[in-house]
Simulated scan of single mutants.
Amino acid sequence: MTPPPLLVIATTLVVLLGLATMLTWAERRLLGLWQDRYGPNRVGPGGLFQAVADGIKILFKQDWIPPFADRPVFVLAPAIGMMTVLLAFGVIPVTALWSIAGDLNIGLLFVFATMGLGVYSVVLAGWASNSKYALLGGMRAAAQMMSYEVFMGLSTLGVVMTAGSFGLRDIVQAQAGLWFVIPQCLGCVVFLLAGIAETHRLPFDLPEGENELGAGFHTEYSGMKFGMFFLSEYAGIVLVSALVTTLYLGGWQGPVLPPALWFAAKTGALVCLFILLRAALPRPRYDQLMALGWKVLLPLSLLNIVATGAVLLLRAPG
């Protein structure tokens, strides 16, 4: 039985925003574990209420807008970032019956379209701040996100060719016998690397490089506007992890456990991988980041498309 659409929308929003908030605590705890130091451990059991304390603090911080900023654009920029991430979650099938947009036959294209709009958030934030550090961060973010969206899209063509559909539910069902992470391992690696760059997470957080740009495109933001950028980043981590789960790890499929638990477990493991990369890898130079994309990931994604097409032609009847 399909759940009521309003229930699906409300539950998805509450769970997503709650996860984005609690990920701040989970990241600090895991970073402390992997770097052999203390994480948050004072507020609540294991520091669990630290995320709540941070949320309350942001709510009561002064919401200041610089007098030299372009006020309407400055206010609009973080809202765009939050809306694009939330819209992309509308087509993610958590189970066979649980998806806001239902069985949308162009679900993957919709995800890329909404993620592509996210670049406006960082560009407008950097430009409207009227600050050289924010502008440089915004330009870096635009170049990085637009470049890596190319490789992200190309890396999924092998999945689309194998499944024969752009619908995310169809892609999950096509993995009933074999998860695509095995035949599409090259595409999975390219997609994951592009997803890290798309969400500008370490080691690809050049738009926010604190040793060069202060905080990059959100240098001038405070209060809940900064909080929206913060939540958008963590929601983006969950989104990319959910997409990898859907496209390459069989989505909700798995034995014994309920489908929703399988989807949550796979997505959670990928989120932990995002955090582990932050703990383990240094930040490259910006030219090295762009060279990795255009000189390495682009040829690999094209090679994956050619190899997938050749295999499908060989297997075709007649």
Rank of each mutant, 00 (worst) to 15 (best):
P3N: 09
V8F: 08
I9D: 08
A10F: 02
T12E: 03
L13G: 03
L17N: 07
L19W: 09
L19G: 05
A20V: 01
L23P: 00
A26T: 07
E27M: 11
R28Q: 15
G32Q: 06
L33R: 13
L33H: 13
R37G: 03
P40C: 09
V43L: 15
G44M: 06
P45L: 15
G46M: 07
F49R: 09
D54K: 00
K61E: 15
P66V: 06
L76Y: 09
A77C: 04
A79F: 14
A79Q: 12
I80W: 07
T84Q: 15
F89D: 00
V91H: 07
I92Q: 01
P93E: 02
T95R: 01
N105H: 15
I106K: 05
L109T: 08
F110H: 10
F110M: 14
F112W: 14
M115W: 01
L117W: 10
V123A: 14
L124F: 13
L124Y: 07
L124W: 12
A128D: 10
A134M: 04
L135D: 06
M139H: 04
A142W: 08
Q144T: 14
F151Y: 15
F151C: 11
G153L: 07
A163Y: 02
I171V: 13
I171P: 01
A174C: 09
C188I: 08
C188A: 15
V189I: 15
V189N: 03
L192C: 10
I196W: 13
A197Y: 01
T199E: 10
L202Q: 10
D205C: 03
L206E: 00
L206Q: 14
G209F: 05
E210T: 08
G214W: 03
G214L: 02
G216I: 11
Y221N: 07
Y221W: 05
Y221Q: 06
F230T: 12
F230Q: 07
F230Y: 11
S232P: 07
S232N: 13
V238L: 15
V238S: 02
S241E: 02
A242H: 04
L247T: 08
P255F: 08
V256C: 05
P258I: 05
A260F: 13
L261Y: 03
A264C: 05
C272E: 02
C272N: 00
F274K: 08
F274A: 00
I275M: 13
L276N: 00
L277D: 03
R278K: 14
R278V: 02
A279S: 12
A280G: 01
R285V: 01
Q288K: 12
L289D: 01
L292V: 10
W294M: 09
V296K: 11
L297N: 06
T308W: 06
L312F: 10
R315P: 04
A316F: 14
